[in-house]
Design a protein around this nucleic acid. Structure first.
Lengths: 146, 146
DNA sequence: CAGTTGTTTTGAGTGACTCAAAACAACTGG
DNA sequence: CCAGTTGTTTTGAGTCACTCAAAACAACTG
């Protein structure tokens, strides 16, 4: 079954990351995997479907642990709560809609990470370049025009 | 006198932006101008020197008004409160120290704004590209090495 | 210089978390 | 496979960085 396959996969990934396998962790990992960019509340809503009674605090704990373990990635666009996504390890970027806050992935702009080099780094030893594009999503373009 | 010259300049810039000229606005504009990247508390500290008794709420009001008017720019790096800077209108970028949160300006990476074009914009109409570099500032490199 | 309009202050309220202690569940080794 | 240890989850309180609202006040206008 799809759901069980997912669960097994989640368990395996947790184990591989050296984390204890618990129901909330599986539920959160499944909730985020393949569902775009979710904030803690949205994760809780999804988790409530498979594991009712889970506390928001646990969601925060789990999201923190999974992010530290590299199983999830956290992004923090201006004016938004933190969002979590399951696509990790490829340093891709994001477009954020200035009207509805929708987020989409954008592949690395040039070559591989860090895909940009500053002209002058002010003495900093840079290890990451994070790019956030701002614009109007397709839906909002339509609504604004319409 | 330098201070008065600054004050006159600030007043002129406020007027030019169509804003009423008030003591807190002048004080905040002066506090931010040429002093890097300050959060609301840091602005209040600086303002307290020239205009004691100013409330934090006023600082928030003023920072908001000046930002809306284009006299200040707000940046919100992950894990930091909002920071304000006086360099506006040139869409430059920033380097943030992952250890001490120091921020420095970085000139536009390539050409002019928006200096990047995503390979695939997922249907978004993009108007801005915001780049944040993460690394270790010179001081922190020294402390980590030493 | 009186009026109007927009600012600043005071004070309360909110969202998005973090911190801590106690109850509990996963893996370990016996 | 069962007790122990260690790490998790829950419960509940607390914090930070703001935002909202009403009343007191100060800038520009005529």
């Amino acid at each position: 079954m799809t759901t069980e396959a997912h669960r097994d996969d989640a368990a395996a990934r947790l184990r591989a990351a050296g984390l204890k396998v618990t129901a909330p962790r599986i539920a959160v990992l499944d909730a985020v995997s393949g569902h775009g960019h979710l904030d803690a509340d949205a994760v809780l809503s999804r988790v409530a479907g498979t594991l009712p009674g889970t506390s928001l605090q646990s969601v925060y704990n789990v999201l923190g642990a999974l992010t530290d373990a590299g199983l999830l990635r956290r992004i923090e666009p201006a004016e938004s709560p933190a969002l979590y996504e399951s696509r990790t390890g490829d340093n891709h970027h994001h477009v954020v809609c200035t009207r509805c806050r929708a987020v989409a992935d954008v592949d690395c702009v040039v070559g591989e990470p860090p895909c940009l080099a500053p002209s002058d780094a002010a003495g900093f030893a840079i290890h990451t370049a994070e790019v956030t594009f701002w614009g109007l999503c397709a839906d909002c373009q339509r609504e604004v025009a319409g």
